[in-house]
Computed example of a mutant assay.
Amino acid sequence: MQPTSSIAAPIILTLALVSSSLCLAGRPLAVDDANVNEVGAGHVEAWYARQPGGVNVWTVAPAYGLTEGMEIAASWARDASNQVNTTALQAKFRLTPSQKDGCNVGAAIGASRPNDGSGNTPYINGLLSCNMDAGSLHLNLGANRPPDGPTLNTWGLAFEREFGAMTAHVEYFGQEQASPTFQLGLRTELVKNVQIDGTVGHASGDALFSLGLKFQF
């Protein structure tokens, strides 16, 4: 039987695939927002993460606005500690118009697959984002089904706010049969269309961190 941490890792990775053009969520958040890229616009995110149990993971995740209100994304993650590669594909939908002052709803559906022969893990995620003067609030409620296992509920809550050139966030997320993660993060634009970011967090008694870059086009 696959360890819980091995099952959870690819699911948590897929939560952070995509970013928005109006709402603020995106890398380095793990909690997703309810918006999508504009048609013809996209980005590539790349990051290193130290995960529970001292697992070292490198990830590359492109996303592209395919049609109005729909974004497609993919990811490739290398678990260097256990020598496992995980790929994921996702479609994300903006279900209501984005608002600068107000809330909008989205949804994402996808699947991840490690190369260890354990099969696909399909997932679905409901997304709510609310923008206000104080910042942006994001709520995720979803589920995934690991191979030969029960359906597991997932959830996440995040708040982010701009401070000049910096945007900071705090988030709390998790899934059934795994310890939740508390995380803080910061991001800023290094040069035009290039973002640098990082997080620190805590889960399962372990200290976590990540460092990443995001390229927009």
Results as ranks from 00 to 15, higher is better:
116 D>F: 08
93 F>W: 08
113 R>L: 11
79 D>H: 13
111 A>W: 03
103 C>S: 15
109 I>A: 13
92 K>S: 09
86 T>A: 09
89 L>H: 13
96 T>Q: 08
97 P>A: 00
91 A>L: 05
80 A>D: 13
80 A>K: 13
108 A>H: 01
80 A>G: 14
99 Q>P: 00
90 Q>V: 00
113 R>S: 12
93 F>N: 05
83 Q>W: 08
77 A>N: 09
89 L>K: 14
109 I>F: 12
106 G>V: 06
111 A>P: 02
114 P>D: 06
87 T>S: 12
110 G>V: 07
115 N>Q: 11
92 K>Q: 04
80 A>Q: 14
81 S>W: 12
100 K>N: 15
92 K>V: 00
100 K>H: 12
111 A>E: 02
91 A>C: 02
86 T>P: 01
112 S>P: 05
105 V>I: 07
109 I>D: 06
96 T>C: 06
105 V>D: 00
110 G>S: 06
90 Q>Y: 01
106 G>W: 03
105 V>A: 01
84 V>Y: 06
114 P>F: 00
79 D>V: 15
89 L>D: 09
115 N>S: 11
77 A>C: 10
112 S>V: 15
89 L>A: 15
97 P>C: 00
88 A>Y: 08
101 D>S: 15
80 A>W: 07
98 S>W: 04
99 Q>D: 04
87 T>Q: 14
115 N>V: 11
91 A>E: 00
85 N>L: 10
80 A>F: 09
111 A>I: 04
112 S>H: 12
96 T>H: 08
87 T>K: 15
81 S>N: 11
83 Q>M: 10
97 P>G: 00
104 N>L: 01
98 S>V: 06
110 G>D: 05
93 F>L: 09
85 N>M: 05
103 C>T: 15
100 K>C: 10
102 G>V: 03
108 A>M: 00
103 C>M: 10
87 T>G: 14
111 A>Y: 05
97 P>Y: 04
100 K>V: 13
87 T>L: 09
85 N>F: 09
85 N>V: 11
101 D>G: 12
96 T>D: 06
113 R>N: 11
97 P>E: 02
86 T>H: 10
105 V>Q: 00
88 A>M: 08
115 N>K: 11
86 T>M: 07
102 G>D: 06
115 N>A: 09
108 A>N: 02
80 A>Y: 07
116 D>N: 14
